[in-house]
């Protein structure tokens, strides 16, 4: 039964039933999917409409006048501009650091075997399940002891460490897909082992490395609890803290500007996910998504 007639080879819904039954079933699937999609998308309606509404409030409404005023304010006011740059510095710094250390470690773990390598790999994966929300108090004590509280460096190091297990696993996986024969050919030509790794392997694993970097960026970019605890000076607040403090202040909020920042804040996440969609499953199994909670 490996080949059947074309009419049977469609989806789980193409049953050989009465046409009216089928029609009803298809209508049902569309209705269900539309309902699910609406449930998922409608909460964002206010954010997008308020962002382009110069006189926005907290409620979903069609703007009388559409204009970029809120975005202009975000980019011209020092405090909101600083939120954006702080988030960029922290997430960007964390990703750069991660790309360096995980390229080195990922390559080593892919190419060299040693005693305890498997245990090490799975030990690293196990650390992924440690929720930052559980270890936040000792983390604060440790960063305080190292003099890293309320600094960019501190936050960059911690954000990088939180994303590390996942990035390392992804990188190791991508290096595994590059055949070692390619390297061996280069060695015979007299190239050094590490030089070869960079010139031959990295370009081939490149797209995967970039994807791992993007996932890590999104994780660090959206992080809320870590800066909440490790940063107190408003000069260092990332966007997540800016949103939270504004929401807590409530009555003093410029909702339009808040919505505009939020839209800018979610934009990289949306763009990146479009880029790395095909790695979504791997990322999910390794627990990258929601892992920042």
């Amino acid at each position: 039964m490996s080949r059947t007639t074309p009419s049977l080879r469609r989806g789980p819904f193409s049953l050989t039933r009465m046409p009216s039954d089928r029609l009803l079933g298809r209508l049902g699937s569309y209705a269900t999917l539309v309902a699910l999609a609406l449930f998922c998308a409608v909460p964002f309606g206010w954010l997008f409409l308020a962002a382009i509404n110069p006189r926005a409030g907290l409620y979903l409404e069609l703007p009388d006048r559409v204009g970029p005023d809120n975005f202009v304010r975000v980019f011209t006011r020092a405090d909101s501009l600083r939120l954006l740059t702080n988030s960029l510095i922290m997430a960007g710094g964390a990703v750069l650091l991660l790309l360096v250390v995980c390229t080195l470690a990922g390559y080593a773990l892919s190419r060299y075997d040693f005693r305890g390598r498997r245990a090490l790999l799975f030990g690293i994966l196990l650390t992924r399940v440690i929720p930052p929300s559980a270890t936040i108090a000792p983390l604060y004590a440790i960063t305080l002891g190292l003099g890293l509280v309320d600094t960019y460096q501190g936050l960059i190091l911690v954000l990088a460490a939180q994303q590390l297990p996942f990035v390392l696993w992804m990188m190791k996986g991508f290096f595994d897909t590059v055949p070692i024969d390619l390297e061996e050919a280069a060695w015979i030509d007299g190239a050094g082992r590490i030089g070869t790794a960079f010139r031959v392997v990295l370009p081939l694993a490149g797209p995967g490395v970039a994807a791992a970097g993007l996932f890590a960026f999104i994780g660090a970019w959206g992080e809320f609890l870590t800066p909440l605890v490790l940063v107190s000076s408003p000069d260092l607040w990332p966007i997540s803290l800016g949103l939270f403090r504004a929401w807590v202040a409530y009555t003093l909020v410029d909702w339009g500007q808040l919505a505009a920042i939020s839209v800018l804040y979610m934009l990289p996440a949306i763009v990146f996910y479009l880029l790395v969609r095909r790695y979504l499953l791997r990322a999910t199994v390794l627990g990258a998504l929601q892992g920042t909670a």
């Binding site: 699910l36 998922c40 954010l47 907290l58 939020s262 804040y265 929601q290």
Partner: peptide, 29 residues
């Protein structure tokens, strides 16, 4: 894409979106 959206945005944005959804006045979504 619509179903993925809630997962990919930062959690503070997700929370803010629901702050407006659940706003207590009669104008809340």
């Amino acid at each position: 894409a619509a179903i993925l959206l809630p997962l990919v945005v930062p959690e503070t944005v997700a929370a803010l979106a629901w702050a407006s959804m659940t706003a207590p006045s009669e104008f809340g979504t």
